[in-house]
Amino acid sequence: MLGEGIIKGMAETARNFIGSYSDPERLVTVQYPEEHIPAKQNARNFPFLVFDVEDPVAGLRCVACKICEKECPPQCIYIVMDRDDKGKPCKHPKVFDIDVSVCMSCQICVEVCPFDAIKMDTEFELSETNRYGGLLLTKDRLSKSNEYYHKIHSVEAAEVDARLADEKAKAEEKVKAKLAAAATAKAAAQAAKPVAG
């Protein structure tokens, strides 16, 4: 019968229309500004810098090695290493800017960072009236505490903390072993001395 397909389709539309008020299968959107969908564990938006202790300047994990600046696909990171009075470079960024109008949230910087210093934020309501300056995030705006990191990516942050603690312990052990080895070598040298003399 001509028109049968149309009627069948209309029935489907009616079912969906009624279902859109009750069936959770057909309710996938929320009223955004009033309601928020909770961010997922792995969600990412723009990068931020992690600092460890209370001090957002000295506690910054970043050592200004510039690996992320080099690897960043759209080249939106800009780093200047800090120098002390004598002009000797210290392992600390003086300038760390990310232009989020260029950033494409790809997470490459997070992946290549050997120090777990840069991580992805989940904040997305970042609209600014100033197109150029407002979207250039400077170091003080990028620095966020480790607690904040734990809050947004609890699983990943716990893993990172465990790894860092492990690395630290290993490094300490290495130093200790080195010291011990040096001590034994010294002792051995001292013990060997009279014979040689």
Binding site: E4, G5, K8, E25
Partner: peptide, 21 residues
């Protein structure tokens, strides 16, 4: 598991539709 239901719906909605044909 829920997708086939939707595909059948789609089929009902469009495949036999005389205008689409």
């Amino acid at each position: 598991d829920n997708f086939p239901k939707f595909l059948e719906e789609f089929d009902n909605l469009l495949s036999g539709n005389e205008i689409l044909m």
